[in-house]
Write a protein that binds this DNA or RNA. Sequence first.
DNA 1: AAGTGGTCTAGACCACAGG
DNA 2: CTGTGGTCTAGACCACTTC
Lengths: 258, 258
Amino acid sequence: MARSADAFHDSLLNTSQPRYMQLAKTLVAEIADGKYAVGDLLPTEQELCTQFGISRFTAREALKKLVQSGLVTRQPGVGTKVVSSKATSAYSQNMAGISDLYQYATDTTLVIEKQEIIALTEAQSALVEGTAGETWLHLQGKRFVADNPLPICVTEIWIHPAFRSIRGVLGEQHEAIHSNIEQQFGETIATVDQQIDAISLTRAHATQLQARAGSPCLKIVRKYRNRKGELIEVAVSTHAADRYSYHSVFNREWRVEA
Amino acid sequence: MARSADAFHDSLLNTSQPRYMQLAKTLVAEIADGKYAVGDLLPTEQELCTQFGISRFTAREALKKLVQSGLVTRQPGVGTKVVSSKATSAYSQNMAGISDLYQYATDTTLVIEKQEIIALTEAQSALVEGTAGETWLHLQGKRFVADNPLPICVTEIWIHPAFRSIRGVLGEQHEAIHSNIEQQFGETIATVDQQIDAISLTRAHATQLQARAGSPCLKIVRKYRNRKGELIEVAVSTHAADRYSYHSVFNREWRVEA
DNA sequence: AAGTGGTCTAGACCACAGG
DNA sequence: CTGTGGTCTAGACCACTTC
């Protein structure tokens, strides 16, 4: 314990990050290293306070991060129990956070077939929270997985006028479009909200997917926002039902409300 | 502002919930009512403190809830901006964690119409990760929302033999079945994994939902597990596409990254 | 310069689980 | 009973945005 506390205090020189985040990383590393095994109890809040010379608030903020990562569960009167030793469950289409969206983009291939700057129609302006007539960049393509020649979905993307000069988004993409925006413009995606619906395949989409018109499909709309809440990109994906399935895992939070 | 603050103080008599949660619900309601429109700034933390007579800690905890719900974004030097009013025609469920599953169960009504103990078929044993012949409790029902007489989904539930003696799960349910299991048996649900697919409505389901057979629908399979990873309950819900929409928000800071 | 949210401290009381 | 985590207060300093 003394060793990790020393390492922690050394890291306090790094002012780039808040203390609770540094403590969270320290604990994550210790769990990954096996210092605390699955089923073990982490030090209590009080112990963390004295060991690391921090207030209870800071210790709790750090422990919150572990709970949100699904590494530990907490219970009044019991303590903080380790339930998993790895922060991220690398594989499988597991949507637990933004990072999984990046992973998804590298695991699959998006082929952009059309790229044009368009003036928003009324309907489109409602979707992208803009005003009709604004000139957004509109992309259209299909997403493929591994060897399968059949696309898993057709994707339409709208990009805010400020980023419509984005380069290199025609043809095969092996990383996310929003990742491109982040790199080329220094913009950061802070939140993504998505909505999933079941709809009938339109004739046009059916042709592109080589599926039967009217068959069920998953329509996923993802809106990418910066930390100001401004809409940077909207992606609408229409998935052939038998080629795609959405999966996610939730871990118990610190609080249960009735 | 005086009215909402008064209503808030009245609700303080309700000790069933912490203050920050009550404040969060108050703000969510005010956003839904249009008191704050999309693009507006919410009161600052300082204003909330004085208006509601709470400390900054409590105000911040409440605002965190709104951020997690994707309703607002926050920025130092600027304020708390509304980015969504959560107003949709069809019932839209927001899933950010397990607690939202409890909330969903209390916001809607599940009517269980059939309850029987069955021996697993081969197909069922694969679904519930048991062996054929095991005797699980099988429930069947429909879920309703508010005044709408049309159900939003039909639900089938399988419960592990250890908990098949569960009581009070026939008729109208206003809390989650897994919540019942937790209370009656002291078992704790630690993780939930769910899978979402689009399928065609079978004739039987179409009749129950009073919808058209063959129309698209969302099929959601949720598996509830305890801390040991053992499967406690499996719920399969088939949603009429035009009555239900799945929504979730990812925030950048949800994960601890090394 | 003024005000915002982000971080942090040092206290406090509570419900709950365990011996 | 003691100790746990959950909630809450009243302060404080900071980086940042906006004027």
